[in-house]
């Protein structure tokens, strides 16, 4: 149960949602777009999240889309991870998303909610970073379509009053060879340590990582070293380790040293699988 009150709105159009946010904002409220809402409900309970006006976007048709349009797969931001998993239209996303939280929780957690979450894992973004997907964002300035790698730097850089509506992914990345591995410190159900997702396009290997730093990332520098086949395998892995961004997480789930040890082995696993 949440220890504060808020107004609850459920707009049915993009315009209505954007206008409502602006209006409430101008009235001095602290509106929040709400999709699965699991983060507000769990963090709000312990005073780590707050709003006085929830704008639930799940009834907006554009945000619920799941379709192939031409050469692109379009996924709405309010689709639950379970809906995505059951449809299995993007196998790398299915595999990565199926490791988030647990099955029942994934029926509530949404694609957009995970990508825009406060929690630093945000693993659902990894496949889209690898696939150079496009994001559709709506806000006071209208709709805009942007490559995700231009707007996702540690987090999705939304301006006030904007929200994520859809993600579009080119089909050639949907069918590319991939691997997605999640490592936990304890059993199959413990909190995540590191998730790595990798995609192979032609002879090029792409990797994106969650749980190593306090943000998910894809690094062209890391990929460049991993793809340098003139170097020995050990030198490529060691070189990639040296190029991961700072800071390395050092917490109760795993020390920085342990995380780098796990990452090193994950790099070997990825190369072994995708360079066969």
């Amino acid at each position: 149960m949440l220890p504060f009150d808020f107004d609850y709105y459920k707009p049915e159009t993009l315009k209505e949602a954007v206008d409502l946010f602006q209006y409430l904002d101008q009235q001095g409220n602290q509106p929040m777009f709400f999709s699965g809402g699991t983060e507000l409900i769990t963090l709000g309970r312990i005073d780590l999240a707050y709003t006085d006006a929830v704008i639930d976007i799940k009834d907006i048709a554009e945000s619920k889309v799941m379709k192939v349009s031409g050469d692109h797969l379009i996924l709405g931001s309010t689709l639950s991870l379970t809906e995505i998993e059951e449809a299995n239209l993007f196998p790398l996303l299915t595999k990565t998303a199926s490791e988030i939280a647990d099955h029942t929780a994934r029926g509530k957690i949404t694609l957009g909610g995970n990508i825009c979450a406060q929690i630093f894992y945000r693993e659902a973004v990894l496949p889209f970073l690898l696939a150079d997907s496009q994001v559709l964002i709506i806000g006071p300035e209208g709709k805009k379509v942007i490559p995700i790698n231009e707007i996702f730097h540690e987090q999705l850089r939304l301006k006030r009053g904007e929200f994520l509506v859809q993600l579009a992914t080119d089909s050639r990345f949907i069918t590319a060879p991939f691997i997605s591995i999640k490592r936990r410190q304890q059993w199959d159900t413990g909190y995540p340590l590191i998730t790595i997702a990798a995609l192979k396009t032609g002879q090029e290997l792409r990797v994106a990582i969650s749980g190593l730093c306090p943000f998910p990332f894809r690094s062209k520098e890391v990929e460049s070293v991993l793809n340098n086949i003139e170097m020995s395998l050990e030198a490529r892995v060691q070189g990639a380790i040296e190029l991961v961004p700072d800071p390395i997480l050092d917490d109760v789930e795993g020390s920085a040293e342990y995380r780098l040890f796990v990452l090193q082995n994950l790099f070997y696993d990825v190369l072994a699988r995708l360079e066969r």
């Binding site: 609850y8 809402g37 699991t38 409900i41 769990t42 029942t104 929780a105 029926g107 509530k108």
Partner: peptide
Amino acid sequence: NGDCGACTVNLDGWPMKSCLML
């Protein structure tokens, strides 16, 4: 907190943790 599942109900045929839903 959505972790234990003791509050699970069925929502339109699918499991739902009722503590994670308004």
